[in-house]
Nucleic acid binder design. Structure first.
Lengths: 216, 216, 216, 216
DNA sequence: CATGAATGAGGCTTCATTCAT
DNA sequence: GATGAATGAAGCCTCATTCAT
């Protein structure tokens, strides 16, 4: 019984992952259900035993990817110790690395954005995205606040704004690297983060931390 | 003859602008040609006298919007004098203001992203986007370099990276504000830009410039 | 303009009549839209320019046939003079003749009955049928009442019941003749109507009329 | 072995009755096999151990209902004594009562009619219906002939026609009551039958019989 | 025997595109 | 040139039927 349930879940995952690949390479509207079925190694009809419609499957792919990405982020953040700055750098590197390996899947994100703009599921997507961004910003905010408490960063920073902008920057660098083969988002993100960290640094003590003991 | 030509161009514009409105509210795949025709106040068949296909029309909308946005940016930048910092701030404000007024059209941008990922015209879109981002980054790079030359910003900055990241930040803040009604991209952009400017500032003199004469 | 409108109506009729033939030979669910299109000599898509769906087209066929049948009845009744008995006989003959010529179309009636029982359009069909039967019964009731007033039929008859039963009998004889090739509904209806007329006859005077002066 | 056989028959009946309920509420084409299975309290696959196909099951339902109805009629007729007129009246009442109680099942009859017109099994249905009507007409014919022999009814009646018409009337009144909630088929049938009986009555003696001794 | 997961043929419907007027 | 009626390819989805367990 429990095995049966687990079996179904396993099959559902197989479908979602197959669908993710197809949606990524063809786009939502370019994808036909039969290709997903073929990719998943099953008959067209079987898909409908697990998902009500193409849209529902697409949304499931979204949730799956959002979950995966979020798990990646939380793991990255919690795994590393060190100063807030270092943890931000680590987060940045980890995020960029995640996606640079899977540029194919980044196209899915673009599909999701587009779906949030015009699909019938606009509301569901907007809502889910809104939540996802909020969660992500919260993680970054927490890191920044930690840095302020530790005295790494200046007090009086507009924490929320900075968090939102950083989160956005990561998105946007991946986007640019999607358009431009020669663009290296990982390095770009590092360079930029250094500037931002300097901008946030506590003048007196912060510079010491950042410049790693350069003055006396 | 010349009048005839102008007449055709004028009609083409009418079609493109009508199409932009419809694509924005329905998405590319949700849009049907007849609705564009109705919006443009003409018959469905007429569209095909001006554009070869739906995709061609969609691409024309893209070019039209890219052109409009680029024009806006160049005007903003050239119009304003002042320090590099101030011109960056002005550019930021002007960009945010442009899109905040036209959230509807921001959905078009998402459609374009999605098209660049999966449409049959992927190559054309990627190429055009790549160029558009490059152009935009160049403008920002130029401003930053100007700031370095003037001594406002530190020498040794990774100019290209910062430019790319800033351009991305603006995109990404608009994106977040699309998902989240309560999110104010204009203020967020300002707050964040201040941090970045501080991060770029020339240690000795830059602080003075930034803090605008608040010395103690 | 008016010509355009008339042209569309004419085309709609062509579709309805083609659909009637196909529905009659295949049944609603056995019918595929492409066969209707072929029968009407047009493309499948064209049907949808005139009717929203298969169901809508089916209902249009129903209305068309109901209208045709009702027109036939009213014409039959009004055309003939004579005693009420004679007019009832004429109506009976005329009805049977109408359908005997078009047994194929009688299968449509069975489809309609079935649709009224189980289709998604159950309500519409029941309502329309209910009205059609009421109208038809009213015509027959009026004839019977006329016969009573003229003294042909007894007073005190249950006019409504008789009308309903007669209407039903005609239906049912056609039904039986559908099942049974050797069954002659026209003769059967005549024979039976004679019995009913005798049953309704005014005892004193009616017998004279019916028996055409046989006793003194 | 015999027990095994009986067990199978019992299960078959369960399926047929479940199917009858589902066909009645959804129509043949609106019915899905899984709902029948659920209604019968068994798995979908099991149905196919007892019936070759959906159509075969539908036909089995038809036979079951035809058998049930015919049994009802024969019981009604044989159970009652009395004059032919009285037995006809009793038959009429009994039939109407049977169906009025089960309007749901009357929808099945409509499905059968429709199937006889257009199903792949058209021939089987027509044949079976033809036989069923013939059997039923024979019963009524026999009653009428009995009445003629007893002197209740006139000699020279078109017995077959009257039987066919009466059988049809009962069908048709149920049909009308299906369409029209306010319609009472039982009373209508009684009223009408009285007229028909009067029409069949032997002139001299018949009236006495019908008016049951009300002489003046 | 019983089951229900899997299948894929097939239908309704949409809509980009064409072309006669 | 402008129109919009006509077309038919193509896709989503359903469901009767099968078959491994």
């Amino acid at each position: 019984m429990a095995g049966r349930q687990a079996f179904k879940e396993e099959k559902k995952s197989r479908i979602v992952e197959a669908a993710a690949r197809v949606f990524a390479r063809r786009g939502v509207f370019g994808t036909v259900m039969s290709e997903i079925a073929a990719e998943a190694g099953m008959g067209k009809g079987t898909l409908y035993a697990y998902f009500d419609s193409k849209e529902a499957l697409f949304f499931a792919v979204f949730e799956w990817l959002a979950h995966k990405a979020f798990a990646h982020v939380t793991v990255s953040v919690s795994a590393l110790g060190g100063s807030a700055s270092e943890r931000l750098k680590a987060l940045s590197d980890s995020l960029m690395a995640l996606w640079v390996d899977q540029t194919d899947f980044f196209t899915l994100v673009m599909e999701f954005w587009s779906a949030s703009a015009s699909s019938h599921m606009r509301k569901r997507f907007k809502c889910a995205f809104s939540q996802a961004y909020r969660d992500f910003r919260d993680i970054v905010s927490a890191l920044i606040r930690e840095g302020i408490e530790r005295g790494e960063f200046r007090a009086g920073l507009d924490v929320e704004s900075i968090a939102a902008a950083l989160v956005g920057t990561w998105d946007a660098l991946l986007l640019q690297s999607w358009f431009d083969e020669g663009f290296d988002p990982l390095i770009t993100a590092r360079d930029f983060l250094n500037v931002v960290l300097k901008g946030m640094a506590n003048q007196g003590q912060g510079r010491i931390a950042l410049d790693s003991g350069s003055n006396a």
